[in-house]
């Protein structure tokens, strides 16, 4: 596979026009969603905290473009991108952030717990590394039932140093479970650089320790992500897990309270030259898949969809106070 840095014009893709549009729209929706949420937080219009995915969109969208609705994912505290890519409804996502009854979790979960089991989404997660064993268990169900499904387990460069990573990948490898462990290396666990947190540069070498394939890729190149996950998907169905480390970057802080003291403006700006959204746009334009006007139209529509989601959320009712005590136990 050709290596892609910066401009994307030369990459070949067999993806249909409809598929490319869907992928581009999901990146745009994620970007617009996150920018709106950042605005809300900056104005104190919603409470709690949130972790935004701006800059990392190609990883979630490129990976999940390989999945069906009934394939599973586990997500992270930085989960809005995975969630939009998995096809969850923008209105109900925004309603959850505003703590509304119509939100995915009826206002009980917030940003870090959005999920929809019916769409194969096993939840964002407030615990770093918390979703890794859960993805492993989902893959165990798939294997025990003999289903034709895969699991993608998203986690970050922070989580790769949690014990759950080691325990889960080892177990999945021993049991040959159909799960792709996809590490999004956005370079920082909160403020701590991955280079300070480990003594290795390429995190994918850890795969060797488990006897599974490992691959480091450009997580800002949506086609490289897509193609790697496509290969990994076929591999894991027959052979057991696969580790992918997607190199990417978040432009915004770890959470709303981040003053960005641990990195330089130059570094952030350097990564902005590798922004996944313009890269995909250049590809779509240069290959004449869409006209500039069509692409502008998509960008306008994405922003409008988010405005509509905000309207939906604002007009939704708050949870019934009596609902505080429900949903602790299943019948």
């Amino acid at each position: 596979m050709e290596k892609n840095t910066g401009k994307n014009g030369k990459r070949k893709s067999n993806l249909s026009k409809e598929k490319l549009q869907d992928m581009y729209m999901k990146m745009l929706h994620t970007r617009a969603f996150e920018e709106k949420v950042a605005y809300f937080f900056s104005r104190g219009m919603v409470h709690g905290t949130t972790h935004l995915y701006v800059g990392e969109e190609a990883t979630a969208v490129g990976a999940i473009a390989n999945l069906r609705a009934d394939d599973w994912i586990t997500s992270t505290h930085r989960g809005h991108g995975h969630t939009i890519a998995k096809g969850l409804d923008l209105n109900r996502m925004m309603a959850e952030l505003l703590g509304k009854e119509t939100g995915y979790c009826k206002g009980k979960g917030g940003s870090m717990h959005i999920s929809d089991i019916t769409l194969g989404h096993l939840g964002a997660n407030g615990i770093v590394g918390g979703g890794i064993p859960i993805a492993t268990g989902a893959a165990l169900t798939v294997k025990l039932r003999g289903e034709d499904k895969v699991v993608i387990c998203f986690f970050g460069d922070g989580a790769i140093n949690e014990g759950t990573f080691h325990e889960s990948v080892n177990m999945a490898s021993a049991w040959k479970l159909p799960v792709i462990y996809l590490c999004e290396n956005n370079q920082y666990g909160m403020s701590t650089s991955q280079k300070k947190a480990t003594n290795i540069d390429d995190l994918s070498v850890r795969a060797q320790a488990y006897g599974i394939p490992g691959k480091r890729i450009d997580g800002n190149d949506i086609f490289e992500v897509y193609e790697t996950v496509r290969e990994a998907k076929e591999y894991v169905k027959k052979n057991g897990p696969y580790l992918i480390v997607a190199e990417t970057y978040r432009y915004l802080g770890h959470s709303k309270s981040d003053a960005n003291r641990y990195r330089t403006k130059e570094e952030i700006n350097e990564w902005k030259t590798k922004d996944p959204i313009p890269r995909m746009r250049i590809y779509l334009e240069e290959n004449k898949i869409f006209t500039p006007e069509e692409l502008d139209g998509m960008e306008t529509k994405a922003k409008q969809d988010i405005e509509n989601a905000v309207e939906y959320a604002k007009n939704s009712p708050d949870p019934d106070p009596a609902d505080l005590l429900t949903d602790v136990y299943a019948d």
Binding site: L122, P133, T141, S168
Partner: peptide, 26 residues
């Protein structure tokens, strides 16, 4: 050995995989 599974010594993975398996229908 498919339904009675000896695991590695990995309590977090055992409990967490049980949770993931349970949430997906097992």
């Amino acid at each position: 050995e498919t339904r009675v599974r000896d695991t590695p010594i990995s309590e977090a993975a055992i409990i967490g995989a049980a949770a993931g398996a349970a949430a997906t229908g097992s």
